[in-house]
Structures are given as C-alpha cells and as structure tokens.
C-alpha cells in the first residue's frame, strides 16, 4: 500500500499542491483528474519517486520512500510517462527488455525467469508481430502499448501511467482501459493513471482522484463524485 499524509508536491522550489492525504491499495484502478496545470503530473511523479516530495509523509508498504533504495522501489513500481523517446534504431523487443533492468546482472543479460516474464507480457499485449520493429516507426497507439509492456516486465505491484490515453484513437483508448482493468482486477496490481477522458473511465475505475481549482484532492468513487457536484464546478459537466 502506498500511503501519504500532509504531502506537498512541487518542483524547482515551488510548491504546487499541499496537505494531500490518500492511499493506493493493490487491486485498485484509480484515475487522477484535474484541469491542465493542476499538478497531476507532479503528483504522479512524486508518488513514483521521480520527483522528490516537498514535505510530508510518503511510504510504500509502511516503509518511507527515503529509506528504501531506488532499486527496491523499481521492483515494486513502474511508470509509463509522456516524455518522448528519441533513440534511433531501438528495437521494440530491446526496449521491453530494458524493463527487466532492476533484475538483471551488471551486463544486462536476461535469465530464464526474465525471458519468461517478457514472453508473458508480449503475449498478454499481443505484441508478437511488432516485436522486431524499430520503436521509432510505430504508431502512437503501438508505442503506448510497448511502453506499457516495458513497465509490466518490471513486474510492478503498482503501475503508474501519465496521461496514457492522450494520443490514442477511440478503439485504442477502450482497449487500453480494458487492459488496465484486467491488470488491476485479475492480477491484483494497483493501476494509477492521469487522464482527461471522464466519459471513458467513469464506468471502469474504482476511484477518481480529482484535484480541484483550489488544489484540494478529492478521492471518491465515480458514483459519489457524480452526485457530489464537484464535476459541475470543475469541468462544467
């Protein structure tokens, strides 16, 4: 369980959000919402230890982030980010292999267990046909899937995705949601993602985390959120 109390997040010595409380449990599918600039990415990057927190408590399975090693965290959580990848001649399969880095030896050689988990993820996401293509030549939807595969072979208990649906067409969005639901409910993974697609996620997720205009974090089930009127005030819906 990831837990935080009185958490402040921000970057470049600026605090964006403060007094945040919440927790993420295994098996939950959570969508993080909020208008642009509300601090969604910042919160997500703090929860994944990519940005340092400003202050407050933040712990994974009762152990604070500061006292766990980066490698231990990497074995428990993985991310899919919005940053573009610029590598030339990077093969899909090699990119997916990289997800095993926390487990491989100093040379990055794969053990049998590594290969097995890579094989499973590739067949789960049906990437067999494109695994030998160059990453730079894929469509946005395919890239998103490959990045998800890279994160999954990292064998995370907590999976974080920063706006994974943004560049996808409708069928790909729906498919991604199905996959995320499957991961959280069948594999008991916690899946946490930021998004703007309320219609898409409403019937799928367990919780919606809404950051309102005042920087307050509301954690509610989709039904409660709809009846609370928060959506009206924040999104004019």
């Amino acid at each position: 369980m990831i837990e935080f109390k009185n958490l402040s997040v921000g970057f470049n010595n600026k605090t964006l959000l403060k007094d945040l409380d919440g927790k993420i449990e295994k098996g939950q599918l959570i969508a993080l919402m909020g208008v642009n600039g509300a601090g969604k990415s910042c919160l997500l990057k703090t929860l994944t230890a990519l940005n340092p927190k400003r202050s407050g408590e933040l712990s994974l399975d009762k152990v604070s982030y500061e006292s766990s090693s980066p490698l231990d965290l990497a074995k428990k959580m993985a991310v899919v980010l919005t940053e573009k990848i610029h590598a030339d001649f990077l093969k899909v399969i090699e990119l997916i292999h990289l997800g095993r880095s926390p487990y491989t030896d100093v040379w990055g050689n794969l053990s049998d267990a590594d290969s097995k988990s890579i094989f499973e993820v590739i067949s789960l996401l049906k990437l067999e046909r494109i695994q030998n293509n160059f990453f730079s030549e894929l469509s946005d939807g395919q890239k998103q899937k490959v990045l998800l595969a890279r994160a999954l072979v990292q064998a995370p208990q907590y999976l974080f995705l920063d706006e994974p649906t943004t560049y996808l067409d409708i069928p790909s969005k729906v498919e991604l949601m199905k996959t995320l639901k499957q991961l959280s409910h069948e594999k008991q993974m916690a899946v946490f993602f930021s998004t703007h697609d309320l219609n898409l996620i409403e019937d799928v997720v367990d919780f919606i985390w809404l950051i309102d205009a005042d920087g307050v974090l509301h954690i509610k089930s989709p039904e409660d959120l709809r009846s609370s009127g928060l959506l009206k005030t924040n999104f004019n819906i």
């Binding site: 230890a49 990519l50 100093v106």
Partner: peptide, 23 residues
C-alpha cells in the same frame, strides 16, 4: 566496460532510467 547496461537504460530518457532504479 562498466557502462553499457546503464547507458542502455539512459537512452530511453533520464526519468525512465530513474524509474528502473538507477541513481
């Protein structure tokens, strides 16, 4: 000779490298 694995992780970006446990 000590670098290739980490360079490979670094190629896909600093943030990803960090998320895979690299200092």
């Amino acid at each position: 000779i000590t670098l290739p694995k980490k360079l490979n992780q670094f190629i896909i970006g600093e943030q990803y490298a960090k998320s895979m446990g690299m200092n």
